[in-house]
């Protein structure tokens, strides 16, 4: 286990370093001046240069990169004189555009994305996997055909269409729900639920369709394997055959996909956040990219990578829990 954790941690660090280096390099290749865009149109050349200096963008790329890494571990200072700002560790940079630490931006936007993704993931896994399993058990039945049909509709649907459709029906038409406006779960649980319900349904419907198809295919394949036939022949109750033997074997690929999907979704559900005007991590990242807001882009890219890497590690760990045949560190 320890070997597994060390191995995966080292791989994760290498991945994150590589991603941060590539992101840094990309911004240097761009034929644009981030300092100008951050300073605004009314800034003259002197002020743009001052912004450049404040951001440390006048330094060689190697110096900038080491300063960035140093900031993560011991913090760093930005600007000079009366306008010097200290960014405490873990400092992921400073946004001169919004005049705040990047960690503050992440602290504000990440809960929004986590709220959207967590609820949606629970729904899409429960409904998607449940639907797929039941379809497999009732293969060829009307239920199977109907659920496959629904899955096809969901898989072909787009967030921006389905989300708007839900808004049209429930917010603008029936007026039974308010327009989603994020509030913290801890401040107003009911308000949080009202704000999240439509984004959850949107994401869950589209994703559960894929999970239903995947689960159905996996379950059908597993049910046709020898060990299931053996279990049935030995007189193991049908319920046990399905839940203890078949489901356990069929679930591994689904866990893999779910882990990666959730990791990717946590990195930002850009379209969902845009459709429902939720300022989450994804929307913030896209805005930062269009504004050449390097510190925010770098932090969001890194955070996205962390989510993917962590999701992978969790998935690998779950393999061993679900299927004893899998051994960690192998």
């Amino acid at each position: 286990m320890l070997r597994f954790v060390i191995q995966r941690s080292l791989r994760a660090i290498v991945t994150l370093v590589a991603i941060s280096l590539v992101t840094f390099a990309l911004f240097f290749i761009l034929p644009a001046n981030p300092a100008q865009t951050m300073c605004g149109r009314n800034c003259d050349a002197k002020q743009v240069h001052q912004t450049l200096v404040n951001l440390g963008l006048d330094q060689p790329i190697t110096t900038q990169y080491t300063s960035f890494v140093k900031g993560i571990f011991v913090g760093r200072d930005y600007g000079s004189g009366a306008f010097q700002r200290h960014c405490e560790a873990p400092c992921l940079g400073y946004s001169y555009r919004s005049n705040e630490k990047v960690t503050d931006i992440l602290a504000r936007t990440l809960p929004v994305t986590i709220s959207v993704v967590t609820g949606a993931a629970i729904l899409w896994i429960i409904f998607g996997v449940g639907l797929g399993m039941l379809s497999a058990l009732r293969r060829g039945s009307l239920f199977d055909k109907a659920s496959i049909g629904v899955a096809l509709v969901g898989a072909s649907m787009q967030v921006y269409f389905f989300g708007l459709l839900l808004l049209m029906i429930f917010v603008y038409g029936l007026k039974v729900l308010p327009y989603p406006q994020y509030v913290s779960l801890w401040v107003d649980p009911l308000g949080w639920l009202k704000a999240m319900i439509l984004p959850w349904i949107t994401l869950a419907f589209l994703n559960s369709a894929l999970y239903a198809r995947l689960s159905r295919a996996q379950m059908l394949e597993t049910l046709s394997e020898d060990f299931v036939r053996t279990a049935r022949a030995k007189g193991v109750p049908r319920r046990s055959v399905y839940l203890r033997h078949a489901l356990r074997a069929a679930i591994n690929p689904i866990v893999t996909v779910a882990g990666l999907d959730i990791g990717a979704a946590l990195a930002g559900t850009v379209i969902t956040e845009t459709v429902f005007s939720l300022t989450g991590l994804g929307k913030t990242a896209v805005t930062a990219a269009t504004q050449l807001n390097l510190p925010v882009v770098l932090a969001t890219v890194l955070l996205a990578a962390v989510f993917i890497v962590v999701a992978n590690v969790i998935v690998d760990g779950l393999y061993a829990v679900i299927d004893p045949r899998v051994r960690l560190g192998a």
Partner: peptide, 13 residues
């Protein structure tokens, strides 16, 4: 940060 289309739809609704 509300989407422009949503703003108009909300005010029309």
């Amino acid at each position: 940060n509300v989407d422009s289309a949503a703003i108009n739809q909300r005010l029309i609704a």
